[in-house]
């Protein structure tokens, strides 16, 4: 049962206070929550958020934790506005600093990375699918891990790239990860990046940046993106059991 979640006591609902909101892209904002009971999460896990209307109606959605497990009582979520959605537009339009939001976690025992896990590590994300991967990269940095790692991040345009500055800094430090952006609707900004959708040839090149075949691959995004990326990774010769996916439902 080593893969099990935290203790049952971690899973109660708590009222988390929004203490800071930071716009990240035109459609994605970071929300920083202060928790009465700190979470002992692992990189890649998520929380469930529950909103309650005056008539008692509730809506519940999952959001990956962007912050690394850092022992503090603050977690960061990055929430993308889905125009026709019920919960994400509430966060974009209504939620404000000082509001209390019910959440519980940490949840999910499969899409998780521990610094002690075997490398190399290959991370592939699209849009807000970067969030759980960012938690892994942040923890890798915080514990000064030298596990070789690469991130391939797909976005529409350069202005849609989430946490671009932080990723660039992270890729340039000693022991930083290899970083490639794939922009589907704009020319690449750096010579080593791609101006097309993810494909098998691109994955083979990114895997080639690592000193050995990846021992763990994490892929997160919409279902269509995850399928394309997973097929490309398998085509590059990685075994299916090394590949973990998180699909944001759509």
């Amino acid at each position: 049962m080593s893969d099990n979640d935290g203790s049952a006591a971690d899973l109660g609902w708590q009222n988390a206070r929004i203490i800071r909101i930071e716009p990240r892209t035109a459609t994605i904002k970071s929300f920083f929550f202060q928790l009465p009971v700190p979470l002992r999460h692992r990189a890649g896990q998520h929380v469930d958020v529950r909103l309650t209307a005056p008539d008692g109606y509730t809506a519940m959605r999952s959001y990956s934790i962007a912050s690394a497990p850092d022992g503090t009582d603050i977690i960061e979520l990055a929430i993308e506005r889905i125009e026709t959605g019920e919960v994400s537009p509430f966060f974009d339009d209504v939620a404000a600093v000082g509001d209390d939001i019910e959440l519980r976690g940490p949840l999910g025992g499969h899409f998780v990375w521990r610094p002690a896990d075997a490398g190399p590590l290959l991370l592939i994300g699209a849009g807000s699918g970067l969030v759980p991967l960012l938690a892994m990269l942040r923890q890798r940095r915080d514990v000064d891990s030298d596990t070789p790692a690469a991130l391939l991040l797909a976005s529409r345009t350069w202005s849609d790239v989430l946490y671009a500055d932080e990723l660039l800094v992270e890729s340039e430090r000693p022991h930083g990860m290899q970083l490639r952006f794939a922009l589907s609707r704009q020319a690449p900004q750096r010579p080593q990046d791609y101006g097309r959708r993810i494909d098998a040839a691109m994955l083979a090149e990114v895997i080639g940046l690592l000193p050995a075949a990846p021992a763990a691959v994490f892929i997160c995004g919409s279902n269509g993106f995850v399928n394309t990326a997973a097929d490309a990774v398998l085509a590059a010769g990685v075994h299916a059991t090394a590949v973990r996916t998180e699909r944001y439902g759509g």
Partner: peptide, 18 residues
Amino acid sequence: PGQHLVDYFPVLSAGPTP
């Protein structure tokens, strides 16, 4: 309780699609 209706069929799974 806690559920909502969707009009499409979402996909969730832990690994590559076999």
